[in-house]
């Protein structure tokens, strides 16, 4: 079941590559806008880099949340999934993982390149990538709740950002914090462990909450 839903969503993403690329380019553009707005002073950019990359990742991940369920809602396949004898939470987990593979992984892979633009040292680049690798699945999982709640609503796109962004704050703090800590030469393990803990907790609870939300939205 889990395999099938991931396989299906990846297949759909392959058929519609433009969706994946839009998210990635959005991420790149947002990150590239900052030097243009604050100036090319390298020291300043280096201190801001972890925050900028993380905020851009948050926004990019959020931007694609609308698609997580709405296409399936429009063509009726979501209805069919709700009627499946399989666990709906498992299904939502599959959809969130697929969302992460399609939107999160490209961000993780692109982050070191953007970090170089900001002249981040090698260690910091590695930590940035690891923190994104651990943190972006949490964004997809929490985002699934927001996407499920706003399904089919007018202005759903803006609404989902209102609902989801405040919940992203801890991830943002510890994600960017890990990179800053490594740049400052202090330990970053605690940050990464906490993001890992968030990941575990959201793996357990978010699919369940999102599944309940889907049932509410489709009733």
């Amino acid at each position: 079941m889990l395999i099938w839903i991931i396989k299906r969503d990846l297949l759909l993403a392959v058929r519609r590559q433009s969706d994946v690329l839009t998210t990635l380019f959005f991420f790149i553009i947002v990150v590239s806008l900052f030097p243009l707005s604050v100036g090319p002073e390298m020291n300043l950019l280096r201190t801001m880099a972890p925050g900028i990359v993380w905020v851009a990742a948050l926004l990019a991940s959020m931007l694609s949340l609308g698609r997580m369920f709405s296409n399936d809602y429009i063509d009726g396949t979501l209805e069919q999934m709700l009627l499946s004898p399989q666990s709906l939470s498992l299904l939502v987990l599959g959809k969130a993982l697929a969302h992460w593979l399609v939107t999160g992984i490209p961000l993780v892979l692109m982050a070191p390149v953007l970090g170089i633009q900001y002249d981040l040292p090698g260690d910091a680049l590695a930590i940035l990538t690891i923190s994104l690798l651990l943190g972006t699945p949490v964004l997809s999982l929490i985002g699934a709740i927001g996407a499920a709640l706003t399904l089919g609503l007018r202005g759903g796109g803006v609404l989902v950002s209102l609902l989801v962004l405040p919940l992203y704050i801890p991830i943002l703090i510890f994600g960017a914090g890990a990179v800053e800590a490594s740049m400052a030469g202090v330990g970053f393990d605690a940050h990464l462990s906490l993001i890992g803990a968030f990941l575990l907790v959201s793996l357990v609870f978010a699919p369940w909450a999102a599944a309940s939300s889907l049932k509410v939205s489709l009733e």
Binding site: M1, K7, R8, D75, G76, T77, L91
Partner: peptide
């Protein structure tokens, strides 16, 4: 309940699999 971007065969196989 069919996906536009999937083929006819994929649609039937996937929807059946998701229905258990």
């Amino acid at each position: 309940g069919t996906k536009d971007d999937l083929t006819v065969l994929e649609n039937l196989q996937i929807s059946s699999a998701l229905a258990g």
